Simulated scan of single mutants.
Amino acid sequence: MGPDERFAADTERFRRELLAHCYRLVGSAHDAEDLVQETYLRAWRSYAGFEGRSSIRSWLYKIATNVCLTALDSRQSRVLPSGLAGPYDGPDRPPIPSAPGELSWLEPLPDSWIAPPADDPAAVVVERESVRLALIASLQLLPPRQRAVLILREVLAFPATDTAEILGTTTAAVKSALQRARSTLDEVETDELLEPTDQRARALLDGYITAFERSDTNLLEQVLRADATLEATPFRDWQSGRTRCIHLLEAHVFGAPGDWQLIPTTANAQPAAAVYHRGRASGIVALTATATGISRVVEFQDPALVAAFGFPPAIEKQQPIAHPPT
């Protein structure tokens, strides 16, 4: 076996988890994919000098973490509208988009990109819980190195000594950064969420899709919780409370029945759908499904995301389409 084959045999099995790691750090599926490519390029270049002083996995995580931290030095943190200010409570008007380039928006992550082996239930649970949108959005509020410490220690369970070695710092500094990060994230959403495979979650997704496609506010009222929130990038405004959410959709989004088509998928371990407007890709909508209804709706208006989830850029109006293979 040549050196390239040995490198692939030693490292390829970690690619999916490294992609999830980079996504947690940078909040963008596309950026994470590029950073994993850079990680593997750097690892390949230095593979001959790897002397086994740590595991291959730790070595790759060190490279990936530092690649991400370098990238974050020159990039804005990615946000959701709810991370900018409180919900909009002014007079009725269409939501206002941010100026081009003004903000960097959080992106959803296709579950198929990082799905761990089905025969490893523990890995499945960790992966799902650690890419929920609420957590990813909250992580972006932390300084990058605090973010890295929290992910390495709390999500990946690296010991403090290993985390310090990865980040080129001291164990005391790691413990201090972890304490500060935990304090900042005390307000992360604590609702017990339904798994996308739960029949109740699928029923809520189906109900939301039907309501949206029919422009039916009565159906929408049945699936949204009274305290539901609604936000969409690239718009700064977001809504809190079922009544305000439904009013915004009815007044400024819904058109004639059939104008919108939604195709079920999953994103960030949540029920989701690819969204089409009059047959053309519009974006991805992710739902936070709980036992008492949908508590949060986040739409990412970016046609390129639809392609990332494996769907075509356009479909025939009202023509059903199969879910892409995962």
Rank of each mutant, 00 (worst) to 15 (best):
E17K: 15
L18Y: 04
Y23H: 10
S28P: 03
E38Y: 02
L41D: 03
A43V: 01
I63C: 04
A64D: 01
R75K: 12
S77P: 14
V79C: 00
Y88L: 09
G90Y: 05
R93I: 05
I96F: 04
P97S: 11
S98P: 02
L103D: 05
E107H: 07
L109S: 04
P110R: 02
A115F: 06
D119V: 09
A123M: 06
E129Y: 04
L141S: 14
P143W: 09
R145H: 08
A160F: 07
A160I: 10
G168L: 10
T169S: 14
T169V: 12
L178M: 13
A181G: 15
V188N: 12
V188S: 11
T190H: 08
Q199H: 09
R202D: 06
E213T: 04
R214W: 02
L220M: 14
E221K: 13
L224R: 01
A226R: 11
P234Y: 11
R236E: 10
S240K: 15
G241E: 13
H247V: 10
V253K: 10
G255P: 12
L262H: 15
L262R: 15
T265S: 06
A267L: 11
A269F: 10
A269H: 13
V275G: 01
H277N: 09
R280N: 09
T292F: 02
G293E: 05
D302P: 06
A304S: 11
V306T: 07
F309W: 01
G310Y: 02
P313H: 11
E316M: 01
K317A: 07
